[in-house]
Design a protein around this nucleic acid. Structure first.
Length: 283
DNA sequence: ACACGACCCTGTTCGC
DNA sequence: TGCGAACAGGGTCGTG
């Protein structure tokens, strides 16, 4: 699922269940996901308290009482399921892919939090808090699109001199962190910018509009509980519904939703990924 | 700098 | 209905 809005939705679902609670037991059912689990993963977590559950880009970061941070990435197909009689937690039946339940956290409040990931592109790491910023995962990561830094001026600076198309520049996690294929397509359509335009050619006015639109799209998606494609759900089992608001993503051949445009959504491939856009109103 | 393919995996969807 | 191919929200790496 997960681009920034989906990860943020998961964070908000898990935070009330995890923050202030300790790991009573941890079950690690396989040696690796995308990467091997850290050495002594279970031992290093058991008994630790989660002080806060944060997010950086598409990474969840659980601050532990041990001084380490549990970093979790959902990859393409990772999800969490909360079970147990806990305030704020929704009990819902396990999905049909129980064989892909890879990690089970039993918490001090009685909640069970299970990580499921059929494709296993997700991973978990334990990193000392003081080393987090210098860690390869975060060292070169770009700005938070919902943070204060994002502005038209900064976008223009980041994109200056770049011949890469806007689509590729926006997907580059070293520039802006957290945007994925869906929200890049949506933001470009709303801004009326062609995904093929060279990033370095963005003028100041367009950069201002693009920055504001990125923020708006992400905030709207978070407010909607993220986008649910296929069977992806929030931690509480509810479906996000932002996918119904897509203007272009996965709408090849369908009418452009911009009032009065009359164009049709096209699909091209850029950097090996599908780009959906309206050739009539995106210039 | 940038594009592209391969790779890490499995599930779903589509065409024949 | 069955079967294989294509494709999928992420990210890294090597090559040209």
């Amino acid at each position: 699922m997960p681009e920034l809005p989906e990860v943020e939705t998961v964070r908000r679902g898990l935070a009330p269940v995890l923050e202030g609670e300790s790991f009573v037991s941890v079950e690690q059912r396989r040696p690796n996901l995308r990467f091997p689990f850290p050495e002594r993963f279970v031992e290093r977590l058991t008994g630790a308290r989660i002080e806060a559950l944060g997010r950086r880009a598409k990474y969840l970061q659980a601050d532990l009482s041990t001084g380490e941070v549990l970093v979790m990435h959902l990859g393409m197909s990772g999800s969490f399921r909360i079970e147990g009689d806990v305030a704020g937690a929704f009990h819902h039946p396990r999905g049909k892919h129980a064989s892909h339940d890879h990690v089970v956290f039993a918490m001090s409040n009685g909640a069970t939090v299970t990580y499921n990931d059929p494709r296993r592109f997700g991973f978990m790491q334990l990193i000392p808090r003081r080393d987090l910023g210098a860690h390869p995962l975060f060292r070169d990561i770009g700005i938070e699109p919902l943070g204060n830094e994002l502005s038209g001026g900064l976008l223009a600076t980041l994109f200056a001199g770049k011949a890469a198309p806007l689509k590729a520049a926006l997907l580059d996690q070293k520039l802006i962190a957290g945007l994925g294929n869906i929200y890049v397509c949506e933001a470009l359509h709303r801004t009326g910018l062609a995904p093929t335009r060279a990033a370095g050619e963005l003028d100041a006015a367009a950069a201002d509009r693009l920055a504001a639109t990125i923020r708006a799209v992400l905030e709207e998606a978070i407010a909607a509980g993220g986008s649910s494609l296929r069977d992806h759900v929030q931690a509480n089992g509810e479906l996000g519904y932002f996918q119904h608001n897509f203007d272009v993503y996965d709408r090849e051949g369908e009418p452009c939703r911009r009032p009065g445009c009359g164009g049709r959504v096209a699909r091209i491939v850029q950097s090996g990924r599908s780009t959906f856009f309206c050739p009539a109103c995106q210039r």
